[in-house]
Amino acid sequence: MSSTKDHSGVTTVATYPIAIEINGKPQQLDVHPWTTLLDLLREQIGLTGTKKGCDHGQCGACTVLLNGKRINSCLTIAVMHDGASLTTVEGLASGDDLHPMQAAFVKHDAFQCGYCTPGQLCSAVGMTAEGRAETSDELREHMSGNLCRCGAYPNILSAIEEAMPATREQLERDKGVSR
């Protein structure tokens, strides 16, 4: 922990150092304990792809992959994730090559305003990695933590159904690389 003293000598602001890998890039950061992972991404690092919708874990717009698992970045504080590996929507594509899930969202027109899309994409990739949802009904249930106020659900579902096999292959390849 490091603190600074204000003019009256009172210790006011404490930050804590964390090492965190974000989209493959290791970062050393100093964070206030009350900084959420979402605010760290958007305000401190400038990765604004991850969206703040409700800020209460109800909408899923802030979904990211923490050590490969999908979570709501608004409901966790960054200081707890010293040593973690994080993937945001910015980390899904390889250069100019869209992730299969992103390509399928474009192909199926799986959005209108697009605000929920980064969370939908990360959530869909996380769901694929979990390997628990196969049928359309299961996919709907397992994506219920991501709201779309535009109501693009039918196209989101079509996109996910099409992209899951390729996403699975990519996850397997990534596993091989990290081994």
């Binding site: 874990g57 999908r70 709501n72 966790t76 769901m127």
Partner: peptide
Amino acid sequence: GASPQLRNM
């Protein structure tokens, strides 16, 4: 209960 994201945390 909850959503997959919440259950992961």
